[in-house]
Amino acid sequence: MIVGYPDVELLDVACVADTFDAANRVGASPQYTIEFATLGAQPAISGSGLVLAGQHALERVTGPLDTLVVSGGLGHETAAADPVLVAHVRRLARESRRVSSVCSGASVLAAAGLLDGRRCTTHWVVAPGLAERYPRINVDPKPLYIKDGNVYTAAGVTSGLDLSLAFVEEDNGAEMARTVARALVTYLQRPGNQAQVSMYVQAPTPENSVVRKLVTHIAANLDDDLGTTALAGRAGVSERHLTRLFLDHIGRPPAKYVRETRTEAAARLLTSTPLPLAAIARRCGFGSAETLRQAFVGRYGIAPSRYRNLT
């Protein structure tokens, strides 16, 4: 059962619905019944202007349900402030095998008290506000999706696809999920703890000129000596001052930033080239394939070889 409301994000609904539909078409057993509910069965005008028909009145839906999904969207704050909608989500959660949200739909779960004491994620843009409004939940804005007990939260928009593939794998096995992913022409599936936003595209660019120049140098010279001593010498500052600059402008010390950059570069090469692991390790500045493996597991929670096989 997918729950929507005015200004819902169309992709937050479609990623879930189409994944389950694709699974049905390739033999999911039992078949998924895909239904969309709104208050009063009213049409939900999505953020893009397309209108989704309300198949069911949320207040008349009864359990037991297999999977309850609350979609996100621009209207999430209004939805979370609606006591009627929140009460019915809370009621249905008690009658569902698993409860989930996509993107800012986490706001509704939080308002219903379903995330209290749990670790969860949401879109990185709304994560700070969610954490501030609901101090009893542990908001982690980094992963694509998180499972805490029978409650699942997905980061934003297309991460709903990753979460839905994880559901298919739980229900029907890895081969079924792989078949569905191929049908949808997508990854199978990005690890849940993969970062929402690549460090290569996230904004803003560091304002400090020293940090900005070093970040550019690091990205272009991953196989160089990028130790803190070497970077400080290149910038003409002390190691202590360099560490302070990185903490102030990037939020982590130079060594950690370099390690994350190298690991993400390795992830990109694993999915875009046939290079062997040892060659990728050398190109990204790791001393050995084993060093790369340790860094990769530490960041993504999965071995590089498995990551390549899943994508």
Rank of each mutant, 00 (worst) to 15 (best):
P6D: 01
D7M: 06
V8T: 01
E9Y: 07
L11I: 10
D12A: 09
V13A: 04
V16H: 07
F20M: 01
D21A: 15
D21H: 14
A22Y: 04
N24K: 03
N24S: 05
T33C: 13
F36I: 11
I45S: 04
G63N: 04
L65H: 04
D66R: 13
D66W: 09
L68G: 03
H76P: 08
T78M: 09
A79N: 04
A79S: 06
A81K: 07
D82N: 09
E95F: 08
S100I: 00
S101H: 00
S107E: 10
A111I: 03
L114W: 03
R118S: 06
R136D: 12
R136P: 05
R136T: 15
I137H: 09
N138P: 06
I146F: 00
N150S: 12
V151W: 06
S159E: 00
L161P: 05
F167I: 13
V168R: 00
E169W: 06
T179D: 04
R182W: 03
Q189I: 13
Q194R: 13
V210L: 10
V211G: 07
T216H: 14
I218C: 11
D223A: 14
L226E: 01
L226Y: 09
L226D: 09
T228H: 07
A230R: 07
E239P: 12
L242W: 06
L247R: 14
D248V: 12
H249E: 11
A255D: 12
T261M: 14
R268P: 02
L269S: 12
T271V: 12
L275Q: 07
I280L: 11
R283E: 15
F286L: 10
E290V: 15
T291E: 15
R293M: 09
G301I: 10
P304V: 03
R306W: 11
Y307R: 06
N309V: 14
